[in-house]
């Protein structure tokens, strides 16, 4: 049965160096909406993102894109999937040897036949969207972390992707710029009908932009639904996260005690 979700994750398990990071993660990403994947650091958010963009093989479970399993994609199919997506990595992942303008022009130069002048105008437009039009000739190393991040977003937008994946958009940004970025993400959804997937641990911006929230805890989906539904949740862990309470209960007292003992 065809579902309204553009991407569907079904029973995804993920392992990293023998340790299980994701446990039976199941959720859907609706098209033309903003989905926020939220959770404390180390809960497997970024791993999940790497699965979604096809950088990490799906071992057990499935990721369905338009009903097709991402794990079974051939190289060509994976490439055409990646032409539909734009990804902002945590550090921005700009190429150090190029100016911001050249960085943003990279996908346009490789994938399109647009004239140089058109590409130049497009890069300036994208930089303007993220508020960096004055910095087009700067090298990434001359910019602050937050600016690099915004430039990375401009590059992710260069090809007008259908699906935009954003990893921690507002970390390292001042509140005003962060709010501007949130606004931009919403505008993109409105104007271009973009499907936006945001990974973040920031509550405030998550509830402001999300159409759907996936809350994760220790590799499991803890809560799922519209922001209001999540807010009304009665689950203890969800409330703890929402109310920003510190983790008081020890994860596993036995293993903690064991690791204190001398091992022979």
């Amino acid at each position: 049965m065809p579902s309204a979700d553009l991407i569907e994750v079904r029973g995804l398990k993920s392992f990293y160096r023998g340790r299980q990071v994701l446990f039976d993660v199941t959720f859907g990403i609706p098209s033309h909406q903003v989905t926020v994947i939220m959770g404390a650091s180390g809960c497997g958010k970024t791993t999940l993102l790497r699965h979604l963009i096809g950088l990490k093989c799906t071992g057990q479970g499935q990721i369905l894109v338009d009903g097709e399993d991402l794990g079974s994609f051939s190289e060509g199919l994976l490439k055409s999937y990646r032409r539909r997506i734009g990804v902002l990595f945590q550090g921005g992942a700009l190429f150090n040897s190029m100016s911001l303008r050249e960085n943003i022009a990279v996908p346009l130069k490789v994938h399109t036949k647009l004239a140089d002048e058109t590409i130049r105008i497009m890069t300036v437009m994208k930089l303007n969207m993220v508020g960096l039009s004055d910095f087009s000739e700067f090298m990434p190393s001359q910019l602050s972390g937050g600016m690099r991040k915004r430039a990375g977003l401009a590059r992710a937008l260069a090809m007008d992707p259908e699906i935009l994946f954003v990893d921690e958009p507002s970390s390292g940004l001042d509140p005003i710029t962060a709010a501007g970025l949130d606004r931009l993400l919403l505008d993109l959804r409105e104007t271009l009908g973009m499907t936006v997937v945001v990974v973040t641990h920031e509550l405030e911006s998550a509830f402001k932009i999300a159409d759907r929230i996936v809350m994760m805890d220790k590799g499991r989906v803890m809560a799922l639904g519209a922001p209001d539904e999540v807010r009304r949740s009665t689950d203890e862990r969800v409330l703890q996260f929402l109310n920003r309470e510190a983790d008081t209960h020890m994860i596993n007292i036995d293993s903690y005690y064991e690791s204190l003992l001398d091992k022979e």
Partner: peptide, 12 residues
């Protein structure tokens, strides 16, 4: 028009 390249062309 479905992407921003057309806006860029119009500007040009």
């Amino acid at each position: 028009c479905i992407d921003t390249s057309c806006v860029a062309v119009l500007v040009e």
